[in-house]
């Protein structure tokens, strides 16, 4: 691995971590789980600039670090499920070549929320949480649009490292 790539990995991971922390400072709205998904800025950027595999590594490192620093073991399971489903879908959509960073990030946002709810439903052994799904579905779409637009601009404007 080239030194410049190592540096980019480190930078994006740190950025994703700081954005996670920033987002944790924002008090949750009336429905738990409704949030902007700021760390996804770094992940979508990594997806476009470095590639799918690199985005996965950065996302995984972020999730584990966040759990160690601010969360607990249970939260790790939800986060990993959300991040994994989100990256799988974003990778797929990007590969079709038919969507811009907006469509890709929207799919990622919705998948992230759905993944977290599905794991929470399995862990708490209840289907009751399905009630949250439509709200998180819509909020994930809106958040995905915003994140997609901003990361699209970033990918265009931030100069490429050689």
């Amino acid at each position: 691995m080239k030194a410049s790539k190592v540096a980019q990995y480190g930078l994006l991971t740190a950025l994703a971590l700081v954005l996670s922390y920033l987002e944790s400072l924002v008090p949750p709205l009336w429905v738990p789980g409704v949030k902007l998904g700021l760390p996804n800025l770094a992940i979508v950027f990594a997806l476009y600039r470095l590639g799918w595999r690199d985005a996965c590594v950065i996302s995984l490192v972020r999730v584990v670090l966040v759990a160690l620093l601010f969360g607990n073991g249970a939260a790790l399971a939800y986060s990993v499920a959300g991040a994994a489903l989100s990256l799988a879908l974003m990778g797929l959509l990007k590969r079709t070549g038919k969507f811009s960073s907006v469509g890709v990030s929207v799919a990622g946002g919705v998948a992230h929320n759905a993944g977290q709810i599905l794991v929470a439903m399995a862990m708490l052994e209840t289907a009751r949480l399905a009630w949250y799904l439509p709200v998180l579905w819509i909020s994930g779409t809106i958040a995905g649009v915003l994140i997609g637009i901003v990361s699209g601009i970033l990918v265009k404007r931030v100069p490429e490292q050689k």
């Binding site: 469509g103 579905w137 819509i138």
Partner: peptide, 25 residues
């Protein structure tokens, strides 16, 4: 015009979510 697929995806997701929410309500 330049993001037709994105727009379709967003509209479909919002419609599906809205329909589900309406039905639950």
């Amino acid at each position: 015009k330049t993001h037709r697929n994105d727009a379709i995806l967003i509209a479909a997701l919002l419609l599906a979510g809205g329909a589900l929410l309406l039905w639950l309500g």
